[in-house]
Simulated scan of single mutants.
Amino acid sequence: MDAAAPLTFRPATAADVPALVALIESAYRGDSSRAGWTTEADILEGQRTDPEGVLAVIRKADSRLVAVESGGELVACCQLEHRGEHAYFGMFAVRPKLQGGGLGKAIIAEAERFARDEWGVAEMHMTVITVREDLIAWYVRRGYSRTGQTSPFPYGDERFGLPTRDDLEFELLTKKLR
């Protein structure tokens, strides 16, 4: 990636699916994910997503999978879903070797701007695995609030990975956008 190249944000297409799956997997699973700080390799094995899941997000009504490029290279992605008065932010992945340099901050700021200005939503929602304290702290520094509302991890559904511990759950984080 050329550090001077501007970021471009565009809706992902079906043609992007293989590259997006590879990016998401590299950011969260296996040894390659350990080059960044967002790895889930210590709590989950197996896959993070699959081509069918990524394509479903691309095709879903009121949803947008954003491909983020720099110098023509895919460097990150995120999902935005319009859910009435709020938007859901998910499937956020930054190339591991580019993590920690401000790229994530720029992407989440653009996602919030888009949700507020294009969809007119008042709030952004996301869910984060509760044992990911470092990641939750990063979102809190970006203005997100912990709600204490939790939902169960989908144990037994290998599409979301193979947990290495039995205490996983998601917490809802929210941020007012206006």
Rank of each mutant, 00 (worst) to 15 (best):
A76C: 03
D50I: 08
R10V: 09
L74K: 13
C77R: 12
P152I: 04
P11L: 08
E123I: 00
R141L: 07
A93W: 06
R142W: 07
D16G: 12
G46S: 12
R64N: 03
E133N: 14
F114G: 00
A56K: 13
E52N: 07
V57G: 00
T127A: 03
R141F: 00
G148F: 03
R141G: 12
G100M: 08
T147A: 03
G100P: 10
Y155V: 14
V68W: 07
A4L: 11
V94M: 05
G120E: 02
R142N: 06
G143D: 09
D166Y: 10
S63H: 11
L7F: 12
F160W: 15
L23W: 09
P154T: 11
P51R: 07
K175Q: 06
A15M: 03
V54M: 08
S70I: 00
H86Q: 05
V140P: 07
E118T: 02
T174A: 05
A56Q: 13
T13F: 00
L168I: 14
D134V: 14
E45V: 03
A19D: 15
W138L: 04
R132W: 04
A41R: 15
A4M: 09
W138C: 01
A122D: 10
A76P: 04
A27W: 06
R113F: 08
L20T: 09
R132V: 06
D16M: 10
M126V: 01
T8M: 08
F153V: 15
K175I: 14
V131Q: 10
V21H: 10
I58E: 12
E110G: 00
L135T: 13
D50E: 12
R64M: 14
V57E: 14
D157V: 07
R113K: 09
Y28M: 10
A27D: 05
D62E: 13
L177T: 14
F160Y: 15
T13N: 05
V121Y: 00
R10D: 13
K97W: 02
V94Y: 09
S151K: 07
E45R: 07
V75L: 02
K175M: 09
A3E: 10
L20F: 11
G143A: 14
A41N: 15
Q99I: 06
